[in-house]
């Protein structure tokens, strides 16, 4: 870059107040989020073997290619390198079973970037989380393939991975006692859920790695701690109160918090800057609503897991929440 163009971009930028500068940019935030998701993604490769790696590569490559071609076609500045398409692909891959047929992630990535993001106008204009739209699209298209999970296995016997139910699937179909028996005892169950040695979508299994990544994002102030805390807390309270068979407050909140895609969703998808309310107050309403919908779908609905639809449904009402919590001008009445 020549000195003149640097001057133009660096010092002569015209903008309205406030004129405070910082070195944050879309690319920096996006690549940081990508980086903190890497441990969980690596763990999924360790756990589900090469199919997980293949799904990750397909999702990320197709997402970025779709972004590139659409922006090229529309004569827009090409922003593939800002990491947002990479993040969409990564999140989509972590949200689907690892050993799925190859064309399913391809279609999902095209739907996520092409339909959810670029028909709305690109990054910053989309009303729904692209990765979740991709997943919802796939769940409606191939419901069986999308709910057939491989058994977690090490590298040794990765070749003939058999299908396994997820903890929430067992809970839904066979009940709590069967689930505990499946893992051995309660301590084993919690340990397995916490460390991630369980069945599920590729990147959602390891609670501890996702938590560490999420905490780093909170430390860097890229996400507000209120969102994951409110969403996970709501799920915990509702499933504790209404999730058991023996009456009120006999459910197992810890199980419900650690299983499914709740931690991945609460830290990485309910905090998407574009599709959630602007103010903290609005974000709390959003998170509580998403948590309540998740619990409703898990306890009453037909699906064992509802994080995806809960967040998408709250995305729908984001503009309404924004209007509800609009700050009042000093001295003005609402």
């Amino acid at each position: 870059m020549s000195a003149e163009s640097k001057l133009e971009i660096g010092t002569l930028a015209v903008s309205t107040s406030p004129h405070i500068r910082c070195d944050e940019s879309i690319a920096k935030i996006m690549w940081t989020v990508n980086a903190v998701l890497v441990p969980a993604a690596l763990f999924s490769i360790y756990q589900f073997g090469l199919p997980a790696l293949r799904t990750l590569v397909i999702c990320i490559a197709v997402s970025m290619a779709t972004e590139y071609f659409i922006q090229k076609w529309q004569n827009k500045p090409i922003t593939v390198n800002d990491g947002s398409a990479f993040l969409t692909g990564l999140l989509l891959a972590m949200n689907i079973p690892a050993n799925i047929p190859w064309y399913i992630p391809v279609v999902g990535s095209v739907a996520a970037i092409g339909i959810a993001k670029h028909t709305m106008g690109g990054l910053g204009y989309n009303i729904f989380n692209p990765a979740l739209i991709g997943r919802a699209f796939l769940l409606a298209s191939w419901p069986i393939a999308m709910t057939t999970w491989p058994t977690p296995a090490g590298w040794a016997n990765k070749v003939d991975a058999v299908t396994a139910a997820t903890p929430l699937g067992i809970l839904k179909l066979q009940g709590y006692e069967e689930l505990v028996k499946f893992f051995g005892d309660k301590t084993d169950m919690y340990m397995s859920l916490f460390l991630g040695t369980r069945g599920g979508s590729a990147g959602e299994t390891s609670a501890v790695l996702l938590l560490l990544g999420g905490l780093y994002l909170i430390y860097r102030k890229y996400i507000n701690w209120q969102i994951p805390v409110c969403m996970i807390g709501t799920v915990g309270i509702i499933t504790w109160a209404f999730g058991g068979n023996g009456g009120l407050f006999t459910g197992d909140p810890l199980l419900n918090i650690l299983s499914g895609g709740l931690i991945l969703g609460a830290f990485f998808m309910a905090t998407d800057m574009v599709t959630i309310p602007i103010t903290i107050k609005g974000q709390i309403i959003f998170a509580v609503g998403a948590g309540a919908l998740t619990s409703l779908i898990r306890l009453i609905g037909g699906y064992p897991e509802g994080v995806c639809y809960a967040i998408l449904l709250m995305n729908c009402v984001t503009p309404l929440i924004d209007r509800l919590v609009r700050p009042v001008k000093f001295g003005a009445r609402r």
């Binding site: 047929p101 064309y103 279609v107 699209f137 409606a140 298209s141 191939w142 419901p143 393939a145």
Partner: peptide, 11 residues
């Protein structure tokens, strides 16, 4: 492998 979504309302 047909994509069911296309014959459902969302598709």
């Amino acid at each position: 492998d047909p994509a069911l979504i296309m014959i459902l309302p969302p598709g």
